[in-house]
Design a protein around this nucleic acid. Structure first.
Length: 432
RNA sequence: UCCGGAGUAGCUCAGUGGUAGAGCAAUCGGCUGUUAACCGAUUGGUCGGGGGUUCAAGUCCCUCCUCCGGAGCCA
């Protein structure tokens, strides 16, 4: 006689029925009664093995199960007499794969050890919750742009030169063409797509060979980069805010169990959903920072502390816009009212998470771009294809980049982005 | 790259010059529903590597390596 195989997430629908579960042993507590905490990737459930209800050899097996052994368990779905949660009253157990001396024990571990065992750490409850939320955010991002009429236009990962010229790039030999570089942004490749598709986005890994050693940096991270034709700075802030709210909403709706595992305070997320994001010009932000005790001067980029100081005084996400042109990328459109300023906007997440979105309006004048390329001492030859966007039907256009890992870190309220990626790549971390 | 901190049992840590310790894990035994279960016992160490001081070094000095936190740079 065979019983239906059921995923733990569907257990509730099978109350009173005999079913088979397949999964891994998270923990075992043995007394006369034996309790197996089982996980199957879809959820967690307690299996109860008693001498009365289980076959003798299964009862015996339950007594010698080890952490992370793979098993199947067949029994009746009942409710926990104390908590009311579904549990399985076991009739029979089979051992599918044994597990000897699993390194990650129920007690605490250091970060270095956990990172070395990242491939196993993925099985831990917190990591499971975080990566499920990451999954939901990726899906939300795709759904948002697809439903909004954007066309996915994949930017290449192997590129011939720097896009922004500032950051360090990872290089790799590319046949007879010399060095190729891993892309640090797909944006420049989106712009030519506008005249073909109107609104486009790319979403994939990007790479920065910066020797940054902070809680906000990975050398490999995912970024979604929408770009819109006939669009201005205002459109960036409107779109970015809608996207952020959509992402937060999807997680609040669909990942309640995971948020609970993470003990995430939901109030700041609900707040972000229900209010209009704050806006402040760079110039006002500098004034505000000075009031709050920062030693920043106009013309300097925000330091890590500055973002923290600014956001501690804020109860919602904040757009900072119109930065000094000097420290922004060469392709930014200058502010027609004050040409010292660039029409850029960054979205700072609350709770100390800092920049999640960076974007703005792109320069649409060929002559202006040529002047900028000369001024920045870039090689015009590298950008001819990019300049063609301005030669053949140039229009105002704008877009932004949203860093997935930073969004996950904020929404899960994590102390470090390294937990937001399945296999994070950082300064000094290439394994596993 | 700079500043600070740390490397001792499989893991998390205590041990400030005189015989190397605890909790967890593992192993064995006990316990009528447990939930980081609990109780008892056992096993487990080139004290990060190299050099030095000393009768004696986990402990003091030099040096290298690795990791953690922060800065700069950025999403």
């Amino acid at each position: 006689m065979s019983t239906p195989i059921v995923e733990i997430r569907h257990l509730k629908q099978h109350a009173g029925e005999t079913v088979t579960l397949r999964g891994w042993v998270r923990n075992v507590r043995t007394s006369k009664m034996r309790f197996i905490e089982l996980r199957d990737g879809s959820g967690f459930v307690q299996c109860v093995v008693s001498a009365n209800d289980a076959e003798p050899e299964s009862y015996e097996l339950a007594g010698r199960l080890t952490q992370e052994a793979a098993i199947t368990a067949t029994g009746i779905v009942q409710t926990h007499p104390k908590t009311g949660a579904p549990e399985l009253l076991v009739k029979s157990l089979t051992l599918v794969g044994e597990s000897v001396d699993y390194p990650i024990t129920p007690k605490e571990h250091g970060t270095a050890f956990l990172m070395e065992n990242r491939h196993l750490w993925l099985r831990s409850k917190r990591q499971w919750a975080i990566l499920r939320i990451r999954h939901t955010l990726v899906k939300a991002i795709r759904d948002f742009f697809d439903e909004d009429g954007f066309t996915l236009l994949d930017s290449p990962i192997l590129t011939p030169s720097a896009c922004e010229g500032t950051s360090t790039l990872f290089g790799t030999p590319y046949f007879d063409e010399g060095m190729a570089f891993l892309s640090q942004s797909g944006q420049l490749y989106q712009e030519p797509g506008l005249a073909a598709f109107g609104k486009t986005y790319c979403f994939g890994p990007t790479f920065r060979a910066e020797k940054s050693k902070t809680r906000r940096h990975l050398t490999e991270f995912w970024m979604v980069e929408p770009e819109m034709a006939f669009a201005h700075l205002e459109d960036v802030m409107v779109l970015g805010e809608r996207l952020t709210k959509f992402m937060v909403q999807r997680v609040l709706e669909g990942r309640q169990e995971e948020l609970k595992i993470l003990e995430r305070d939901l109030a700041p997320l609900e707040q972000a959903l229900n209010v209009t994001f704050a806006r402040m010009t760079y110039t006002d932000a500098v004034e505000k920072l000075k009031e709050l005790g920062s030693d920043i001067n106009w013309g300097e980029d925000f330091g890590n502390d500055d973002e923290t100081i600014l956001m501690n005084a804020m109860d919602r996400p904040l757009w900072v816009h119109r930065f000094p042109k000097a420290f922004k990328a060469f392709y930014m459109e200058p502010d027609p009212i004050d040409p010292k300023l660039a029409l850029g906007a960054d979205l700072l997440a609350p709770e100390g998470y800092g920049e999640v979105i960076g974007g703005g309006e792109r320069a649409s004048s060929l002559q202006y771009l040529l002047d900028q390329i000369e001024h920045e001492q870039l090689d015009r030859k590298d950008y001819e294809w990019y300049l063609d966007v301005r030669k053949y039907g140039s229009v105002p256009h704008a877009g932004f980049g949203l860093g997935l890992e930073r969004a996950v870190a904020w929404i899960c309220k994590l102390p470090h982005v390294r937990e937001t990626a399945p296999y994070p790549r950082m300064l000094g971390t290439l394994k596993p």
